[in-house]
Amino acid sequence: MVTIPLTTDFFTNNDSCMRDFIRFIIKYHFAILFLIIEVVSLLLVVNYNAYQRSTFLSSANAVTGGILKRYNTGSEYLMLREINEDLARENAYLRSRLPESYRASKDYFNMVHDSLNMQEYVYRSARVINNSTNRRFNYVTLNKGRLNGIEPEMGVISNKGAVGIVKNVSNHYATVISIINTRLKISAKLKESDFFGSLEWDGTSYQHVSLLDIPRHAKVNVGDLVVTSGYSSIFPEDIQLGSVESVKLDKGASFYRIKVKLSVDFKNLAFVEVIGHTSRDEQIKLEKETEDD
């Protein structure tokens, strides 16, 4: 016969308060311990919702990051074909942007030594080593970190469009809040009409997001391109986000309800580029000064 240990009775005579108390604890130690551990775990959950995640418990952590990276080098073999195709496509695209592929016109030649027109955005390539699409809060982990010049709040794009925003960085890894994370809002606009709104994920389909705050007097057609607005100083203007799939206008509502199909396939993400904005600090400082006035 096996008895399943739940309670233990050590003390049978109870003469003092203290002894009663100890007896109580021993008798119900299982339930008490359960409550303590459960409260600790729930505190973790709530803290995580309220504040930034501690870097220690994320996949930017060196140990788990290392394991995931090693796993990824294996799993990438299976996707080599698609990755090659993506890279080839991107090569073709870049080659088409080379000066050689434009018709040379020497009639108008214009050279300015201009210290104002400096490079504004710097792109760094990185590899995705962890990714999720099935949760409400989805994150992507990259194989580059602070030592490679990646910092929080940088934009991340793939060759098909925007992916997300860097959240935490460690020395060699970075985690990115992807667009399909209910905590992220991105400033977006309609490419045709320049009306801007915010892009949010409702947590259901990994291929669709909603575009909010487009006023009813704007003209929206199915198939219109949705691109980044460039207001946030995180993404440059006109990075592709997706295209309008359906438009709804409720009676009496002043804003459209627009469903956008994302151009990036989050289930097939291998190489991305992290965008650094060289004069971002300057812009933010100026904006902050203006707000403080």
Binding site: S41, R53, S59
Partner: peptide
């Protein structure tokens, strides 16, 4: 949880 970036979620459920 540590592997899937969800501190406390799985822990509370398994407890």
């Amino acid at each position: 949880d540590i592997f899937s970036n969800t501190p406390g979620m799985h822990a509370s459920a398994t407890v």
